[in-house]
Every structure is written in structure tokens, then in C-alpha cells.
Amino acid sequence: MEKLTCALLVDDDQTNNYLNKLLLSRLQVTDKLLVALNGQEALALVEEHCRDASPSCPALILLDVKMPVMNGFEFLEAYAQLTLPRKHAIIIVMLTTSLHPQDMERVQKLQVDGFLSKPLTKEKVEGILETYFNRHL
């Protein structure tokens, strides 16, 4: 399978990041993996790597909801304001535990490609690749 050039994990939970990194590297999904501990860090990384369609611009962003400083919703709102060259090519999938009905409404209003419940598993990763990148492990 042709690997993705780059993926971005956004989660304040270091253990979860460790486990997801482990899973993605074992499944050989991506060449490069960026990690951000909150929305603000993620936004900085996106602005830095995607300004001129470089290979280090993440093709997939896995976004947690509850985070300090800037949470997932706030990230999506800020991201919507950005003007990036190949923005449509960036896939954002939200990863979360259970959603409060209130949050559910909010998610539907924001532009997000997918929505998955934690934890991330091999099957879920396969699903993402098939759905958004037409690739198979």
C-alpha cells in the first residue's frame, strides 16, 4: 500500500498518542507522523507545513475533542478561517469517547469529514483509508 505522506495526531492524552502512534506505525500507514497536544499546537503545525503544499502537510488529521488551551471544536472553527492551497485534500476525522447530545449538534455544524469513537483500532484505521484515500492495507 502506498503510505500517506503525513498524518497529524491531535490529543492531549500522551498515552493515547503513544498507543495510536504504535498502531499507525505497525500498520505502516504514513511516512511522517506529527503530534500536537492541543488545538493551538495543531493549528500552528498546519499553518507551518501546509502553506505551500509540501509533503509534510498532513493528509489526515485525527482530532480529539476535549483538550486544554484549544479544544477540537475551537480548532475546527479556527481551521475553517484558514486559506490553504490544497485544503480540500486534508481529511479531518474526529476521535472521541461518547458525545454529549449538545456536542453532537455542534459537530454537525462544523466541517469535519468523519467521526469515530475511541479507541482507535486496526479496523477503524482500515475504514478511514478505504473511505477517504481508497487504499487498502
Binding site: 492524552d13 498515552t15 493515547n16 498507543l19 504504535l22 469517547t97 461518547s98 454529549h100 475511541k118 479507541p119
Partner: peptide, 16 residues
């Protein structure tokens, strides 16, 4: 909700 994350981490770590 908050307990779900650490318990699934523990489960993940267990699998690892």
C-alpha cells in the same frame, strides 16, 4: 466520559 479514555488506554496498553 472522562473515565472511558484512561480505561481504553489501559486496555490499549494491555494489548500492546
Amino acid at each position: 466520559h472522562d473515565l472511558k479514555a484512561p480505561i481504553s488506554n489501559i486496555e490499549g496498553l494491555l494489548h500492546a
